[in-house]
Amino acid sequence: MRRTALFAMLAAIGALLVGLPGRMAVAQEWPDKPVHIVVPFPPGIMDLTARVIAQPLSEKFGKPFIIDNRPGAGGNIGTAAGAKAASDGYTIVLSSSGPLTNNRYLYQSMPYDSLRDLTPIIMIGEIPLVIAAHPNVKANNLKELIALAHARPGQITAGSPGTGTNSHLTIELFKKMSKTDMLHVPLKGAMATLTYVMAGNVDTAWALIPDYVKQIEAGKVKALAIATRKRIPLVSNVPTALEQGIDIVSGAWFALMGPAGLPRPIVDKINQEVNRYLSSAAGRDRFTKIGVQVEGGAPEIVTEKIKADLALWKPVIDKLGLKPR
C-alpha cells in the first residue's frame, strides 16, 4: 500500500514537472494576440479606468487590450465571465469591491468565489462616493435632506448604480443613522443613475464622484456631501458627511483580476507595468483628474483587502437586515 501511494505521488509530481516548461513558455510568449479586459458595469468611471489602464498595457506589450462591458447583477455577471475564462491571460477583469466582497451576502447564489476562483493581479485604486440631488430638491446639505425625508417618509428617492453596490449599502447605512425612510431605486450603472437624477426621476443619487463633477459644476445636479474623511481637490467646495455630523466614509475600490490558475509570470508582467504607470507622473495626474486615488502594489494586497472587506461588511449587512436576492 505504501509503495503504491509513493508511486502515485511520484507520478503526480512528474506530471506537474512535465507540464511546467510548457506553462512557462506560454507565459513568456504572452501576449501574442489581443487581451480582453472585462468591465462588469455599463460605461462610466469603471469603463474609463479600464481604458486608461489599457493604453500603457497595449503600448508596452504591442497587442490591443480590448474593453468588454458585461454589466448586470451588481457586477456579478462580468466578474463571473472573468472567473470562468481560460487561465491563459487573454481575458482578465477589472472588478470592484461590490462583486468581490459584499455581493456574497446580498445574493443567494454567487457564480464564483472571489478568493477561490479569481487570481489577484493588482489593486488599481479607490473612488469616493458623492451624495447628489436634483436642483429642485429642497435640500442643500445633509441636515436639510434628513428633515425633508422625515417630512415625507417613503417618498424621497435615492438612486444607486445597483443592488449590492457600496452606494446601495451607504444609502441603507444613512437611513439607519438618520432614522429616515427613503426609497432605494437600484439602476443599471453609474451613468443611468446620473441620467435619472439630472432628469428628476430620482431625488438623490449616491454614486462615485468622477461621473458627477462636470454636472455639479454646470449646476445640473447639486452635491450635498462627499463621503471622505477630508475634502478632495476635485470638488473642494463640497463638504464631507463627517463635517455635517454624519459618520459615513464610503467609496469603491477596484482591482484587476484573472481566473484561478493564471500563471504567476503573466500576473507579474501585468502587475509590474500597471505599477509603473500608476507611480508615474502621467499616471497619477491622469487618475487624479478623474477622481481616482491610486493604490498599486503586490497582488497579495488585493487578497488582503477582499478578506478585510468580507469581515467588515457582513455585520453591517446583517445589522441593516438586508436579505439576499
Rank of each mutant, 00 (worst) to 15 (best):
R2D: 15
T4N: 12
A8F: 11
M9Q: 14
A11S: 15
I13G: 08
A15Q: 14
L16D: 11
L17D: 08
L20H: 14
L20D: 13
M24H: 00
A25L: 13
Q28V: 01
D32E: 14
P34Y: 08
P34A: 09
V39T: 06
V39S: 01
P42H: 09
P42R: 03
P42L: 07
P42K: 06
T49M: 11
A54L: 03
L57P: 03
S58H: 08
S58K: 06
S58I: 09
F61R: 04
G62R: 09
G62L: 11
I66A: 06
I67M: 08
D68N: 08
I77M: 12
T79V: 00
T79A: 00
A81F: 07
G82W: 00
A86M: 10
S87P: 11
G89M: 03
P99K: 00
R104K: 13
R104W: 02
L106D: 09
L106A: 05
Y107L: 09
Q108T: 15
M110W: 00
S114D: 00
L115E: 11
D117Y: 01
T119G: 03
I121V: 15
G125I: 01
G125V: 03
E126N: 13
E126A: 10
P135V: 12
N136F: 10
N140E: 10
N141G: 06
N141Q: 09
I146H: 02
A147F: 00
L148F: 02
A151Y: 06
A151D: 13
R152W: 09
P153K: 08
P153V: 06
I156A: 03
S160Y: 10
T165E: 08
T165M: 02
S167G: 11
S167R: 01
F174C: 09
K176M: 09
K176L: 07
M177K: 13
S178M: 04
K179P: 06
M182P: 02
L183G: 06
H184S: 13
V185G: 04
K188V: 15
M191S: 14
M191V: 12
T193N: 10
T195E: 15
T195G: 15
T195H: 15
M198C: 12
G200P: 10
N201T: 14
D203M: 02
T204Q: 03
D211P: 09
E217R: 15
A218M: 13
A218V: 09
G219R: 11
A225F: 01
I226E: 07
L234Y: 06
V235G: 07
N237R: 12
T240M: 04
T240I: 03
G245R: 07
D247V: 01
I248N: 04
A255I: 01
M257F: 00
M257E: 01
A260F: 08
A260K: 13
L262S: 01
R264H: 15
I270P: 03
Q272L: 12
E273A: 11
L278R: 00
L278E: 03
S280E: 11
S280P: 08
G283M: 06
D285C: 05
D285S: 15
F287Q: 05
F287G: 03
K289L: 11
K289T: 12
I290V: 12
V292Q: 04
V292R: 01
Q293D: 14
Q293A: 07
V294A: 03
E295L: 09
I301W: 13
V302N: 08
T303I: 04
T303K: 10
E304Y: 12
K305G: 02
I306N: 02
K307D: 07
A308H: 13
A311R: 12
A311E: 14
K314S: 06
K319S: 15
P324V: 11
